[in-house]
């Protein structure tokens, strides 16, 4: 359960210039299992996503996840909320898939054998077992994104936030990742440009100019979004 209480985010752009407002007046209560966020480039949707796990803290207001304040309980929030970025290349830290998943498990205190078993299980579940010892650098873009998801889901977070996870992928990998996200038990907040993926969500938020301009079921919200994106 994610709650935004009159959240605003402002940032300094150039020294001396007045602050830019990135997001303002966001009041939300997200309980749906699948929430999609759509909006133009630079609309503030990535910031909205980053607020959920405390990567960005609100300038005004507060963000609560299951009652925990992202500004106060950062560590607990990040155990609860997993985050997947657009570019898996920057998210993968270790030289091989096995080691990258093992790194995620470091903070769960497991002994070496348990850890190895968990790592193998996670890689198998994501179809990466055959690539466990391959250089991360040699994986395809789609495999890298699957691995990024594996690394995040290995610790079994309750909520998963994905910031355009399929934007860099070809159609085939896009479908693989979409199906994987659909199959998860977790609550998923999906920031996307893919309206087909958004259409499958239980609730769709449209962000434009730093504000939520539409919020509702997929059908109505996506219509609003198409309207706003129409070039006149």
């Amino acid at each position: 359960m994610i709650t935004f209480e009159s959240v605003a985010v402002r940032a300094e752009s150039t020294p001396g210039a007045p602050d830019v407002t990135i997001l303002a007046g966001v009041d939300l209560h997200l309980v749906e299992r699948r929430v999609a966020v759509v909006g133009a480039n630079g609309s503030g949707k990535s910031t909205l996503a980053r607020l959920v796990n405390g990567l960005v803290l609100p300038t005004d207001g507060r963000v609560l996840v299951d009652g925990l304040d992202t500004a106060r309980d950062g560590a607990a929030i990040r155990r609860r909320v997993g985050f997947v970025f657009t570019d898996p290349d920057a998210q993968l830290v270790m030289p091989t898939p096995r080691e990258d998943v093992a790194l995620s498990l470091r903070r769960l205190t497991l002994d070496a054998a348990e850890r190895a078993e968990r790592v193998h299980g996670v890689l198998a579940r994501f179809g990466l077992a055959a690539h466990a010892e391959v250089s991360v650098h040699a994986l395809s873009g789609g495999q890298k994104q699957l691995l990024a998801l594996a690394g995040v889901l290995a610790t079994e977070p309750a909520i998963l936030v994905c910031d355009e996870p399929t934007t860099l992928l070809d159609l085939r990998w896009r479908r693989v990742v979409d199906e994987l996200l659909d199959s998860l038990d977790q609550q998923v907040v999906l920031v996307t440009h893919d309206l087909d993926a958004a259409a499958r969500a239980d609730r769709v938020l449209v962000v434009d100019g730093g504000r939520i301009v539409a919020d509702g079921d997929a059908w109505g919200a996506i219509e609003t979004y198409r309207d706003r994106m129409a070039v006149r």
């Binding site: 985050f83 970025f85 830290v93 790194l103």
Partner: peptide
């Protein structure tokens, strides 16, 4: 740019605390 994204990703994975 890559380093900054990686920094955010490390924080998101809870590796900074």
């Amino acid at each position: 740019a890559r380093a900054r994204t990686t920094g955010a990703a490390l924080a998101a994975r809870g590796l900074g605390e």
